[in-house]
Design a protein around this nucleic acid. Structure first.
Lengths: 286, 286
DNA sequence: AAGTGGTCTAGACCACTCT
DNA sequence: GAGTGGTCTAGACCACTTG
């Protein structure tokens, strides 16, 4: 459940200061360090010179992430207040705040003044298409979904490798279209690890309203928190041309996406073909 | 030079508290508010119910941005220390810190522990290609530049509009190739407002080592801090095909970029055609 | 040793939401 | 009014860089 984190690491701080054992008590335990006025006391998580240096707020962050990963709080739910978390971890509210601030910046949590802090979700109207960068040239986004296929298969080596599975492991393959005003715009092929998505069927996918990632959170407890995309231009082959209703050889945007859950674990591979005649892929550079 | 910012805005805080005039003294002026123990005093920048609400750290941030915009510190230079800035603005170090934190998160400033805080620049090795998302399938990035053209012209309406100029205003047009291992990969057309880039010539562009954006900072004081891109797939026309050494009709990535400087002012429009046979456009989704 | 940013704490008060 | 996150301050000490 909870553990009081070790303070700092292999530094001079470990000398001449009060030192605590690793097995801290749960709940309110008072400030961890009483040795000096307010300065942090030292305990090392590795031996001197070890590879890990981590400020206290980052250790707190890791503990909160571990709780998210363990399903202690589900997508869309509130996590405990900052004061509660501070008491639980035996640190000040300011330290919890800094941990939560980082997680909010990474879109793991959402702060709402006066209400609390909530586990981020893909299933809300406001962030409905968090990972979808396709925009119409005119008008606003509104896409219909058409499921083409959903089947189980043994992982081909190339796909297995990216998902860190063994070739031949069970996996789910989904193919679908996204349409705008009845015209096909996106053809997606999606691959998911079979062990995480047991019971995923065509019916489940068709019943669910909202984006797939909302379904994955609610039904399978898999949160997509980050993704990498590789984008290229390529010519439509016969199959893609037919499905997207474009001539063979027409230029299409190829978007290959690898999505990660907590702990940088890859849990989805997706290959999208975008017809960019009246839509474009938007990106912000900072 | 400096001004003590107004505290908060049209809120209850403005009552029963010490109030300062707007024309604060420069340099160390002591804490602005002595009325209560530490709480902020109130002055309104607009009348009650005005459209502006801004916490103190954001007002400080705006003042720092104004100084950047005014050229008080140039790209790559150090800005004053947090304590100096705190004294200058009459606020605590913590408030300056929060302002600087936000600016560092937006890549306007770069913090270096023990050394100071520096104005971000495109001219450093570490961030050499901050806005270039093209990656080779194998090996590491190394591109040669070939300038094809640099001329002045009167702005066509479509381009002028995006740069918030009037049609017919002076502008600079640059065309160039980027090559990897001698093979052309990117064809860029670049449009710049003529009034900001007086004296930009083929020679200046060819002489400068490093990315264009480094030159723009150093020679013209124009910092690109943010950009929006619209990406599509299209077929190579005869001209692009010849320059990129691909067949006519070959699929290319079209990347249209609008870049902004301080104050969300657009200062560059760029249209790149990328040959994505052995390169791809990388993107991170959060 | 001095100066800079980085971390941590403690306490005050403000703004927002809900009961 | 109670509870939540948001802002601001003050002070201590740590880590890193430079002289």
């Amino acid at each position: 459940m909870s553990a009081v984190p070790s303070r700092f690491n292999a530094t001079k701080a470990a000398t001449e200061r009060e030192v605590r054992g690793a097995g801290g008590a749960i709940g309110h335990a008072g400030p961890v360090n009483q040795g000096a006025a307010t300065g942090p006391a030292g305990v090392l998580s590795h031996a001197v010179g070890g590879p890990s240096f981590s400020p206290l707020y980052r250790q707190i962050k890791d503990l909160i992430i571990a709780s998210l990963q363990g399903g202690e709080w589900k997508a869309g739910e509130a996590i405990p207040s900052e004061l509660d978390l501070a008491a639980r971890f035996g640190v000040s509210q300011g330290t919890v705040r800094k941990a939560v601030d980082e997680m909010a910046a990474e879109n793991l949590l959402v702060r709402r003044q006066g209400k609390g802090t909530f586990v981020a979700t893909h299933a809300e109207q406001k962030v409905q298409y968090r990972f979808l960068r396709l925009m119409p040239d005119e008008g606003s986004q509104s896409l219909e979904r058409q499921l083409l296929d959903c089947k189980r298969l043994r992982a081909p080596a190339a796909i297995a490798k990216q998902l860190q599975l063994r070739a031949g492991d069970q996996m789910v393959e989904v193919r679908r279209l996204l349409k705008a005003q009845g015209r096909p715009v996106v053809l997606d092929d999606i691959w998911l690890p079979g062990n995480l998505f047991k019971g995923l069927t065509t019916e489940r996918l068709n019943q669910y309203r909202g984006p797939f990632y909302g379904l994955f959170e609610a039904e399978f407890g898999v949160h997509m928190i980050r993704a990498q995309e590789k984008i290229r231009a390529l010519a439509a082959d016969a199959e893609a041309a037919a499905l997207l209703q474009v001539p063979v050889g027409a230029p299409l945007l190829s978007v290959e996406r690898l999505s990660f859950t907590y702990g940088d674990k890859p849990v989805e591979l997706r290959r999208g073909l975008y017809h960019t005649e009246s839509h474009f892929y938007r990106n912000e550079l900072n």
